[in-house]
Amino acid sequence: MQRLLALIAALIVSLPAVAAPTADELVSRLRTVDERQRSSGDFQARVYLEQKEKGKADLVYEAEVYRRDAADKLVIFFTRPQAEAGKGYLRIDANLFVYDPTVGRWERRTERERIGGTASNRGDFDESRLADEYAPAYVGDEMLGQFEVERMRLSAMEGVDVAYPVVEVWLDKATGNLLKRQDFALSGRLLRTTYYPQWIKVFSPSKNADVYYAREIRIFDEVEKGTNTTIVFQQVQLDPLEDSIFTKAWLEAKSR
């Protein structure tokens, strides 16, 4: 009887170790998250950004986003409010440029540029590259509200240009969708918590599979308490885009 109890106890103790996924499995799950969001063709959407900051008036922007993941190109073109209309970001390879129509000048910015002065950055609009940029470590399974999730701690790979050196993600065990993300500073301090409450899938003829996108992203600044940004994606289309869209000339012409 004692032997049996000891065996049961040993099994219980070793159960998490048995259940813990391997590093390859974790990378595979991250790659699934990336792949599901990746469009082999083009991507365009209308985006609404709302920034609430303690002691300041709310900021609301409307913008058009154009993506060509295969070529690492991204355009964010602001259409509203009037004061911001015509401003735009253009990412070509590893370079992010911003265009200000009031001065008619392009400036190179870092990957960590706060888009439109909000808490969002380029990564929130671009394709997901978690598996390429971070090395995952398993933290555990837990409940996030009513969802059973898998929590991972991701560390930036050597030489990769990312804004946050450490990230934690919560993946829905049932669907594999990313539900929550926390970004940490080098010092270990929590900087942002992001929630992805709703994922939508759109069939991509070029990929011949569904492409997933978060319809809504809620970003909470954990350093400046009371500051949060909401990004809403609408009118997502995966039709091929003109090559000229991903050029400075197009953005300048459109901003006139």
Partner: peptide
């Protein structure tokens, strides 16, 4: 107070 900045490698850091 909290200082928030970016390192030479472009990563966010705080102190």
């Amino acid at each position: 107070v909290t200082i928030k900045t970016e390192t030479l490698a472009g990563q966010t850091n705080t102190a």
